[in-house]
Design a protein around this nucleic acid. Structure first.
Ligand SMILES: [Mn+2]
Ligand SMILES: [Mn+2]
Ligand SMILES: [Zn+2]
Ligand SMILES: [Zn+2]
Lengths: 142, 142
DNA sequence: CTTGCAGCTGCAAAGAGTCGCAATAAAGCG
DNA sequence: CGCTTTATTGCGACTCTTTGCAGCTGCAAG
């Protein structure tokens, strides 16, 4: 088993990219969270240790981590992007537009769709962290 | 058969909202397009007839039309939202992250997922106009 | 046809995220 | 360890979208 930092280090090495303190700090701040966070929140967290870090660096690092598949990013409805270390726990969210409640669903729910896109269109879909909006059971019945 | 304007009129009436000239102009500008357009493009189009219209009004009208299900909205990858009158032609897009090519797929492709979300979670998903990113067949083989 | 008032509009300013650029510093090498 | 190369950072400017607010107007009631 390899830690997230080792995965990052591994992924950067070879593609000519560098393992900077800023990147490590963003990753470790993410690792301490237990749910979605915004870039702004990460900025505040990292600044506790390193006051000079800039919001652009946070965003660029997050983009990189998303690219590498370590981090999932989605707008869950508030108009602000949320980030989350996914690692070994791929999932998606159902979000009720009436009451705001969100439910987490396993990635396997999307597998049939993935398969169909593959077989019908030859398209390899990368659906990492979907936000699916709609109306929940309680709201529909109430 | 009822025109888009009639649908709009119908939907506004009763919910206490108003059918303003600005809203009609945005809707008719959309109707003249045959594909996705940005808010900025709509601004330019409407300004040909009515130079005083403001970009906020365009966005607010689009939000309303999306809410009513008349218009679909998605960021197709360029970081700018695209709008489109959907009416009777519900569809989604597959977008290749390598070559940028997009393929339109029918809404029926998502029906099995919709059904599953309904039966497993009691969730009535509103998936109007998805942008699904991934790698197309040509790029994967090339 | 007038009036009244919520719902809209235009404007200016704020938020969220991106980009270009000069200065900095990882990494590889001798 | 010191040097070189080039990816990365911090910063300010910029783009896209939303919001607060004061004045305007659709529209329904009289
Ligand atoms: Mn999540
Ligand atoms: Mn479309
Ligand atoms: Zn609900
Ligand atoms: Zn492609």
């Amino acid at each position: 088993m390899s830690s997230d930092l080792e995965v990052l280090q591994e992924a950067l090495r070879g593609s000519g990219q560098r393992l900077t303190p800023q990147r490590m700090m963003v990753l470790s701040a993410l690792a301490e969270q237990e749910s979605h966070v915004t870039a702004e929140t990460l900025l505040d967290l990292v600044r506790l240790d390193y006051p000079y870090i800039n919001l652009s660096t946070i965003y660029r690092t997050l983009d990189l981590l998303v690219e590498l598949g370590l981090v999932a990013e989605t707008d869950l409805g508030g108009g602000v992007r949320q980030f989350e270390l996914v690692g070994t726990h791929p999932h998606h969210h159902l979000i009720c537009q009436r009451c705001g409640q969100t439910v987490e669903i396993g990635d396997d729910t999307l597998q049939p769709l993935r398969d169909r896109l593959q077989s019908h269109y030859g398209f390899e879909a990368r659906m990492d962290h979907f936000a699916i909006f709609g109306v929940c059971k309680a709201c529909r019945e109430g």
